[in-house]
C-alpha cells in the first residue's frame, strides 16, 4: 500500500511521487471530451483524427492536467492545489501507454507550500506534457 503524505514535514526535497499510469483509452477520452462540451472527432475517433492530420485521437489536454491533480491528491490527500501550469509539448494519443512522473523541487516550510515538477511521457520516454504545481500542505 502506498504511503500517504499527511503534512509538509513528511515531504523530502527531491522526492518522487508514485508513478501514475493514466487511463488513456479512447473511451475515456471521448467521454471526458463530451462532458466538457468538446464534441470534435479528434477526441473520439482515430480515423477522423488522422484525416485532420493527427497521429490518432488525442486525449484532451485538460484531462491530462486533471490527472496530475488526481495524482497529487492520491499522494497527499490533505493538500490543496494552489496552482498548476501544464505545457502541451506534443499530442497525447488515446489508446497508447503513458506514464506520469512528479518530483518535489521546493519546500517552503514557512509558507507551507510545496512545488512539484510534472512530466507525462510516452513509452519511448518522450515528454508530451510538462508542468509545475504548487500545493499547500
Amino acid at each position: 500500500m502506498e504511503t500517504k503524505v499527511k503534512s509538509i514535514e513528511d515531504v523530502v526535497f527531491g522526492e518522487e511521487l508514485p508513478v501514475y499510469l493514466p487511463d488513456t483509452s479512447l473511451k475515456k477520452s471521448a467521454e471526458f471530451a463530451s462532458l466538457v462540451g468538446w464534441e470534435g472527432a479528434r477526441f473520439s475517433n482515430h480515423e477522423k483524427a488522422k484525416e485532420e492530420g493527427l497521429a490518432g485521437a488525442m486525449m484532451p489536454g485538460i484531462l491530462n492536467q486533471a490527472y496530475f491533480s488526481a495524482m497529487i491528491h492520491r499522494w497527499a490527500p490533505n493538500s490543496t492545489l494552489l496552482s498548476i501550469d501544464t505545457i502541451f509539448r506534443a499530442p497525447v494519443i488515446a489508446d497508447q501507454e503513458y506514464s506520469m512522473q512528479a518530483t518535489v523541487t521546493d519546500i517552503d516550510e514557512d509558507q507551507r507550500i510545496i512545488e512539484i515538477d510534472l512530466i507525462m511521457s510516452n513509452q519511448k520516454k518522450e515528454t508530451r506534457v510538462l508542468g509545475t504545481a504548487r500545493i499547500g500542505l
Binding site: 487511463d23 475515456k28 462532458l35 484531462l63 486533471a66 488526481a70 495524482m71 491528491h73
Partner: peptide, 13 residues
C-alpha cells in the same frame, strides 16, 4: 458535472 469530472480524472477524495 463536477462529480463526473472528478471520477473521469481519477480524483478519489
Amino acid at each position: 458535472t463536477t462529480v463526473r469530472f472528478a471520477w473521469l480524472s481519477g480524483e478519489t477524495h
